[in-house]
Nucleic acid binder design. Structure first.
Lengths: 138, 138
DNA sequence: TATTGACTCGTGTATATGCACGTATAGGGT
DNA sequence: ACCCTATACGTGCATATACACGAGTCAATA
């Protein structure tokens, strides 16, 4: 009916997410974590003192999703979730093993990121990132 | 450690996918389907005579994922999966109800798509799509 | 202080995603 | 006809995702 369905932003964004997630998961498999988990570790490295809800908002993620993802990382011994400022809030932080894991992955992350940067032209890397950020802010 | 973690393409792509998926799911809820399901219906409208594997490849999706997603649509009565050219291949096609559902959603899809097109500047809509397609092709 | 409304979180349920593994068929080459 | 490899598919498992619902907590105010 409508050929412009190929321009559907939902379709294209989800396809991109599947593709890059598969790629990342493959590269991370030897480390025992996946891309989603690496993203959470990175978020914790960059900012520790946030409640689960605040952290979820920063990741454009549902609160309950992050909560369960943190449980997985807790089971792996990479993250520790405890009480926050008051009795409601809960905070996550990296364990020593979590820090080590994260550091061990960084070189591979750098390689992968650089490879993507090289491959992206028209639009280039930064333009693509800008587009993704607009979408995240919906 | 590394502030450039904010430029992680995996993080940004996944965030975008979550955000736009939530948005689409919300708009589609009254219709009884979600964004992922709409994408599959659209793929079937545009090209019927493909095996599950071929269709999955076109959607940058794992074969088994598409297979299960088709089952959900089959249960909803929107899709019918049957044998293909030979005894191995299987093919999906829209049922009459599937066609009706798809047509009924198109106006809302148009509105939503147009709204996104308006909102996207720097980079604009087509540039963003181009970036997403590069990522999908990984 | 008691109450009310806003906030924070966990659990149940359904779907989406992909890998590992096994089964079945198709198409050659012997 | 027989095997062998490539192809196509389904199932089991683990994780990711989000909504609906309910429980516990905080803070303001009546």
């Amino acid at each position: 009916m409508d050929d412009n369905l190929n321009l559907c932003l939902v379709l294209n964004t989800r396809m991109a997410a599947r593709a890059i997630t598969r790629r990342a998961d493959g590269k991370l498999r030897p480390f025992g974590i996946n891309g989603a988990q690496f993203n959470i570790l990175a978020a914790l490295v960059m900012q520790q003192d946030r409640s689960v809800t605040e952290m979820a908002k920063a990741l454009a993620m549902d609160r309950t999703t992050l909560s369960r993802n943190l449980s997985v990382l807790e089971r792996k011994g990479l993250v520790s979730v405890g009480p926050g400022e008051n009795a409601r809030k809960r905070q996550a932080e990296l364990t020593k093993a979590g820090h080590k894991k994260f550091e061990s992955v960084i070189p591979e992350w750098r390689r992968s990121q650089e490879e993507l940067r090289q491959n992206l032209t028209n639009p280039d890397f930064m333009t693509t990132i800008a587009g993704l950020r607009h979408l995240s802010a919906l």
